[in-house]
């Protein structure tokens, strides 16, 4: 599949949402006092965890005050 044939108009929203999720998760990670497990590990999961990295962080990693 050539570069031009990729339907960017359709994929772009997905990329943007994914990007915002990662940013929100990282900001939250910085702000929150405690996480379940070390923060650096969560940073790796959020950034490299593909689509579900930030989601796993929000469900499992976040420790609510």
């Amino acid at each position: 599949m050539g570069f031009e044939s990729i339907p960017w108009k359709l994929i772009l929203p997905l990329v943007i949402i994914q990007f915002i999720l990662i940013i929100v998760a990282i900001i939250d990670l910085i702000r929150v006092r405690d996480t379940n497990g070390p923060k650096w590990l969560w940073a790796i999961i959020i950034i490299l965890g593909n689509m579900i990295g930030p989601i796993i962080y929000f469900i499992v990693g976040r420790r609510n005050e």
Partner: peptide, 18 residues
């Protein structure tokens, strides 16, 4: 303030689109 208003819709949108 805990961003739930942001990330919960985004997660549902993400799966809705993907």
């Amino acid at each position: 303030r805990n961003f739930k208003i942001l990330w919960i819709p985004l997660v549902f949108l993400l799966f809705g689109i993907s």
